[in-house]
């Protein structure tokens, strides 16, 4: 407790109201997630006993996950999502770091026009129709690159990163430059190691963007065997369409198509949640004011 000496002690009433409000806020975030994960881990009996979503832990089982991972639509879509996220994040981060460093020295050749070009994208979006026409004329319909290239560079991330690089004192890099190091080497050996936090945060922003990408996939991918997880989530959970668990997802295959059971639906939701829940704690500590203030000033 670091309460400054001049501050009045909080009243007991005030403190308990505050505590209650904060507890409610935390519960409002966590409860739906808890409920979904619990339902996905419950047996069919436990789900029917609860009359739907399970809020009190009963009999648990991994049956839903076993069915989902037996192959078929969901397994494949997770592969697609992981692949797009991995390749996309790597590409985005590389391009963004390079450009942020390249634009971090005011007065260098073409610095002003190029920065202007980046900043102008804040003011005016390209528009949905022309973007679609461009992607289709590049022949990227039904290509995974359609999920990556149009969103590969976000001006916001670039500007945040650049603001961070500009705050590194020039004396640090100057000595390396005098010793004849190339700019690439300076970036790789000196600047990047000093910027692990901001790189992690920007990496998370990009990764989350790719993992969560939904609309571009529905727009650019007509082939439903290429769908990423978010589209599958919408199709089978939000819209409750029939699916063949453990099969190819190709409706031409015979057999009964049933709407997936609640446990399976919730297992799909959980699978969409997990990567965010896993990576997030490692990056959270870097959400320092430095990153964000940099964004404001940029």
């Amino acid at each position: 407790m670091t309460m400054p000496a001049w501050a009045e002690r909080p009243t007991r009433f005030g403190a308990s109201v505050k505590g209650l409000v904060l507890a409610l806020i935390v519960a409002a975030v966590l409860f739906p997630i808890y409920m979904v994960v619990l339902t996905s881990l419950s047996t069919q009996e436990a789900v029917s006993k609860a009359g739907g979503l399970v809020t009190v832990p009963g009999e648990l089982s991994f049956a839903a996950y076993e069915q989902l991972f037996a192959g078929g639509v969901v397994t494949r879509s997770i592969g697609v999502s992981l692949g797009v996220t991995g390749v996309g994040t790597l590409l985005s981060l590389t391009v963004t770091v390079l450009a942020a460093y390249g634009l971090s020295r005011p007065g260098s050749l073409l610095h002003r026009p190029m920065l202007f070009l980046v900043l102008l994208t804040f003011l005016f979006g390209p528009g949905m129709i022309p973007s679609y026409l461009l992607v289709s004329s590049l022949g990227l319909i039904d290509s995974y690159w359609a999920l990556i290239l149009p969103t590969a560079v976000t001006a916001f991330n670039l500007v945040v990163m650049r603001a961070f690089f500009m705050n590194i004192p020039e004396e640090v890099t100057d000595s390396a430059r005098i010793d004849g190091a190339s700019e690439f080497r300076i970036l790789w050996r000196i600047v990047l190691p000093m910027s692990k936090g901001v790189t992690a945060v920007i990496g998370l922003f990009y990764a989350v963007g790719y993992w969560n990408a939904f609309f571009n996939a529905t727009l650019y991918l007509n082939d439903n065997t290429k769908w990423p997880l978010q589209v599958v989530l919408r199709q089978f959970v939000l819209q409750g369409q029939s699916m063949f668990v453990g099969q190819t997802g190709d409706t031409a295959v015979g057999g009964h198509a049933l709407p997936p059971s609640l446990a399976i639906q919730m297992a799909i939701v959980t699978l969409a949640l997990i990567p965010v829940l896993v990576i997030y704690p490692f990056v959270q500590k870097h959400f320092t004011k430095g990153v964000i203030i940099g964004a404001v000033k940029g």
């Binding site: 590389t94 391009v95 963004t96 390079l98 450009a99 460093y101 390249g102 634009l103 020295r105 260098s108 050749l109 073409l110 190029m114 070009l117 980046v118 994208t121 005016f124 390209p126 528009g127 129709i129 022309p130 973007s131 026409l133 461009l134 290239l149 149009p150 590969a152 560079v153 001006a155 670039l158 190339s182 700019e183 690439f184 970036l187």
Partner: peptide, 29 residues
Amino acid sequence: RDWQLLLMTVPAIGLLLLFHYVPLLGNVI
């Protein structure tokens, strides 16, 4: 002096030109 910095900026500028400014021009339709 600056060619390396320019080279570093080219991929990002290229992507923005292609996927932001070209569609912007596409608005002529």
